[in-house]
Structures are given as structure tokens and as C-alpha cells.
Design a binder for these strands. Structure first.
Lengths: 341, 341
DNA sequence: TTGAAAGCGATACCAC
DNA sequence: GTGGTATCGCTTTCAA
């Protein structure tokens, strides 16, 4: 049998209440008693039984808010599945999760959503953030008012949020550079495509890619990065135009959405499978393109986890009183080729 | 607040005991009462509080046995860390974990270890299995005697084990074939190296690799697979010899241990970074070789999880009464290049 | 500063 | 078949 509070209490000749106060640093205990109890706890290798604690705490109820920008993208739909799963579990434990998705990157609507959540009385907030100064400022306020904030998918480090759950985007970019490097051993010309400049996550991926190619793969030449606004049609057009100007393009890297447009263009040009294409996100469409060989490598960033984890971290904090263990919950940079499916 | 047994009991006009009997299918309840209770539970969306259940159950104590073959390999040392972590947590909850590592693949010593564990009174067993008929037969007996068995790292499907935790080895081989294919776009000659024929995990990886290369990458030629007995010195010698016979080797795939020997040989031949090398397992040494460019791709199979999960699955089953959710707990086939470090 | 007691939700066991 | 009750380990509250 594991050591319990009561055993420590008996050994120390005090009551469980006193031991509890010591173990949980609630104060109001004579220092010498405290010292004795701590010593005994240590000697006995006391570890609180998480089930006992959770049982008591789980009767509290809280409201947790989750705001999800870029809600229209296929990837974010997968994230939302994770959030829904967390909601299910949390609801079953008596608390509440409010979800608000916002199309595209929209700071104003995000600010409005935050205000709405606050007036709804949420006690914890998770959101896809970003570098917009108004948003960061707002989050600092929220946090100062005592509401813990967790960012996911897109961080906002200066806001003072508790933790970030998501890809280490810059590094993911470097990994893709490495993949491109090994696929193009003899070097060649690469077309990099980004979504929006404002999408911090996508920009970081692009930066990591460009810097690594430049520094580590001298035989590879980068065209200037193009912006496709996360849109297939625009991405398709970009590829066609680029190929017209540079028929010898050997690789394409797209850090945001619009992947399908790129695939269509490559097919139309008869270059599917010939040009090395590296994309992000394991959506159904991307799966198919990976399978048929149009996409060579795909970085999966565990969408489900990005939705599930933040809500659970807030639940554990608010209800069970367990703060997150880490500031960064980086999801695996999961490289996939078609045989991974 | 979440729905509790008591609320259902009140609504149904019975006692909690009766509801408990219904919910947990313990019988001894009049069918009509049972039906009514189930209906109410459903209407109220009743979900048992796992903490309450765990609290009661966690006072039981059990002995869990873990047997680890190939215990001398760097990879298995990482697995053992996972087991140790599980042991720590399980011990803190009052149960016991006995660990036995066995060097190399040794069916006899494994059988002996199983017998020792049984006479020690373990109530659940996790082990690295394998296809040896005596072992499978033994495991069938063990299972028949009511002791649940879980395999990890190396499966033994015919033994009737409850679950397997580890890599999907055949598929991992196909993934490596894909990596080799994209690194060697123009084809070339490949040297495949295996450890022991008897190591089922390694053989499956080799089979997946060979079959996929043969079927999907016609421009790549495979040399006959060599066996290095998981030994660096042998692997080194194999590489030297192979290069003497075939100086135009473009890639090496090693499905087991001996990775470091391959790296040394490539360095000695001045071919480090020139020949595409794909290996398994994120050991410290392999990390270095990945970093310095001698290894191109590495498949990490989450050693920690392979040790941690099996013990925890047994704990959840024996103590909390929760059977594993799946038969296969496949660890991610985690492709890494040097930028992943 | 400390102790005693109630209660969290589920289970096990013993009466009836 | 069914109800009542003690119990698991911990937190909380109130009185001393």
C-alpha cells in the first residue's frame, strides 16, 4: 500500500489537517512541526494520491473558453475535433467549454470574441494568437485580471501566456529544408510559397526554410517567396507563372494552405511526381496527393493534440490545481512520405 | 455538476448499490428495474467519475512483471527508462513492478524468467516476445492461467497476447524504402544490413524495405542482405567488403544495431555524407552521426513509450479494471533528419 | 496554530 | 434482489 496523509499524521503525532497544510504549503503551521512533517514525508517517500485529490476537486465547475482563428481551413477543422473531444470529457466532469471559431486571421473579431468570453465568465482562455500588438496587449490585460491564457498553433510570446501548444514552426521549416536538400542532391531551383505574411506560424516556417537552405545547401537556389493567401486558385496560378518563367524548377515548398492548387498545377503541367513538393497538414486531400505521389513529403503537426491539449491544460489548472509542466508543448514534427499512410 | 450514481438512484427510486450493479453489469437486479435505470442513466448522460472509481480500486495492490530481451542494446536501455518511470508511478500507487532484462535474443532464458515471475506471483506480464514456438506456447499457457500478457517492441501474435506496443515494423521498412527512393532519384545500388534473422522486429523491417524497393523503385538495385549480429565491428567489416566489391553503392539501410560500425566504415572510406544511410533508434551515438551528416535519416520508435505503456496498460487493467482500448499500440514511425535534433 | 468531521463518487460487503 | 453502510485519500470548513 502507498503512503497516505494519515500515516504521516500518525507518525508525526498530528492530524491529517496539519499534514495537509504542510504538504500543500497552506501555512498556519509551526515551523518546527512543519519541518518534522516534511522530513517524515520524505523518509516515507510520500506521493499524494492523485485520485483522492481529483475526486474532491472535480466537484468544482469552471467555464473554459477556446478561440480558434483560421477556422475555415481544413487543418483547423481537425484541431476543432480535438477541442470537441476535450469538451466532451470536461463536460462529463461537470465543467464547461465554450468554443468560438473565426475565419481567417482577424484580430478585431478575435478581440470581440475575447470580450464576449470574458462577459460569459470564462475562467481560462485558450486561443490561436499571433503577433498583432492589440491582441498581445489585450491578452496581457486578461492575464493580469487573473485569467490564465494558453496559446495553440500560433503563439504570442510577449503576451505572457502560460504555455504554447503547437509546432515549433521555425524548426519545422529547417527540417523541410533538410528534406529538400536530400531529395535534390544535385541542387536546383526552388519555389517557396507562403499564405499570408500576417500568419506568424506560416512565416516562421518559411523563415526557417529559407535560412537553412541558404546556409546549408549552397547548390539550391531559392526564388523569392510568393503569397497565395491560403487559396488554392492563387497558389495554382503562382505555380503556372513561376514555371513559365523558370521551367527548370526542381522543388516547391508551401508553408501554408493552397496545397491543392499547387498539386493541380503540377498535374496540369505534367510535372506531378517530378518536382519535389513539400507541404504541411494531414488533411484528407493532402493524404490523397501524398498517396498518388504528387506530394513527396508532408509535415503533420498533430492537429488533434493542438485542440485537445490546451483545453485539458486549463481544466487541470482550474479544477485540479495542477499548473502546466512546461511552457512549450511542441507537437512532434512528424515527417510523412506516402508509405506512412 | 456532473451526474452521479446517487442522482440516478434517486431518480429511479432505488439505492446506489442497485444502480452500481446495473451500470457495472453485476447482475442480481430485476430486469424491469435494470431497464428503467439504464434509461435514466442514458437520459441524464451519466458518465462514471473515473476519479471516484480509481480511488477505491487503487487500494488494491498487484505485482506486474516486465521482461526485456535485447537488454544490452542502447535502444533497449531507453526502453528500460520508460519501464522505470512506470515502475515509479505504479509503486507510488502501492503496486509493484518487477523488471528482468535479458541480453540478446534468448528464448531459454526468457522462458526461465517467465517461470521465475510466475512463482514470484505476478498478476500481469509484459515482455519482448518473438516468434519462437516454445515461447508462444508458454505464453498461451500463461494467458490460459488467467494472467494477462502484453508484448512490446517485438510481438508474438499467435500467443494470444492482449495488446502489442511498438513499431509497425513492416511498415517502417516501407517508409525507409520511400526515403531511400526520394534520396536516390536516379536509382543506384543499395546495401541492406540486418542484425539476426531471429529478431522478428528487425526482419520485418527488412522485409518491408526490400519488398517496397523491389515493387516501387525499379531503378534501385538491392544487394543481398547481410547479417551483422547487431555488432558494430561486424557491420563495419561488411561495409568495407561490400564497397570493395561494389564501389558504386549509393545507399545503406540497416534494420538493426551495428549502426556505428557502418558510420565508421563510411568515414574510413571517405564516403560519409555521400552514401545515403538510413538507420533506426535515437541513441546518443546515432544523434551525433545524424548531426554530423553521416546518417541521413533515422527512424525513432519512441523507446520510452514502449517501456512505459505496457506496464501502465497492465496497471490500468489489474488495478482499475480498465482493459486496453486497442490491440495495437503502434508507436509513431518518426522520421528524423539532422534538423529534427 | 491545530484538530475533528463532513463529504467528493464509486465500490464492496453484509444484512434483510 | 435490494438497501444500507463503511471505506478509499484528500480537501475544506469550522470550532477550539
Amino acid at each position: 500500500m502507498a503512503v497516505t496523509l494519515k500515516q504521516i499524521a500518525d507518525a508525526a503525532g498530528v492530524s491529517r489537517g496539519t499534514v495537509d497544510r504542510v504538504i500543500n504549503k497552506r501555512g498556519h503551521v509551526r515551523p518546527e512541526v512543519e519541518k518534522r512533517i516534511l522530513q517524515i514525508a520524505k523518509d516515507l517517500h510520500y506521493r499524494p494520491n492523485p485520485y483522492g485529490r481529483a475526486l474532491v476537486k472535480s466537484t468544482k465547475t469552471s467555464k473554459i473558453g477556446v478561440i480558434c482563428q483560421f477556422g475555415e481551413t481544413p487543418f483547423m477543422k481537425l484541431v476543432v475535433e480535438g477541442i470537441e473531444q476535450a469538451r466532451k470529457e470536461i463536460t462529463a466532469r461537470g465543467s464547461e467549454v465554450i468554443i468560438k471559431t473565426i475565419d481567417s486571421y482577424d484580430t478585431d473579431r478575435t478581440l470581440t470574441a475575447i470580450d464576449r468570453m470574458l462577459s460569459d465568465g470564462v475562467e481560462g482562455l485558450a486561443l490561436t494568437a499571433g503577433p498583432a500588438p492589440e491582441l498581445q496587449e489585450k491578452l496581457r490585460e486578461v492575464i493580469k485580471s487573473g485569467i490564465p491564457v494558453i496559446t495553440f498553433n500560433t503563439d504570442s510570446k510577449e503576451s505572457g501566456r502560460l504555455s504554447y501548444v503547437g509546432l515549433e514552426n521555425y524548426r519545422a521549416g529547417t527540417v523541410c529544408a533538410g528534406l529538400m536538400g536530400s531529395a535534390l542532391r544535385d541542387g536546383g531551383l526552388i519555389l517557396p510559397i507562403s499564405g499570408y505574411l500576417e500568419n506568424y506560424a506560416h512565416s516562421r516556417r518559411m523563415l526557417g526554410f529559407r535560412e537553412t537552405i541558404a546556409m546549408q545547401f549552397p547548390s539550391i537556389t531559392l526564388l523569392p517567396a510568393e503569397l497565395c493567401h491560403d487559396t488554392d486558385a492563387v497558389a495554382e496560378e503562382i505555380v503556372h507563372r513561376a514555371l513559365r518563367l523558370n521551367p527548370d524548377i526542381k522543388g516547391i515548398y508551401i508553408s501554408g494552405n493552397g496545397q491543392h492548387g499547387v498539386c493541380e498545377a503540377l498535374r496540369a503541367e505534367g510535372l506531378a511526381g517530378k518536382i519535389c513538393l513539400i507541404v504541411y497538414d494531414l488533411t484528407e486531400r493532402n493524404k490523397n496527393e501524398l498517396r498518388n505521389g504528387t506530394i513527396d513529403f508532408l509535415i503533420d503537426q498533430n492537429a488533434f493534440e493542438q485542440g485537445y491539449r490546451p483545453a485539458m491544460l486549463l481544466y487541470n489548472l482550474l479544477i485540479l490545481g495542477q499548473p502546466p509542466e512546461k511552457e512549450f508543448y511542441f507537437t512532434d514534427i512528424h515527417i510523412m512520405n506516402r508509405f506512412c499512410l
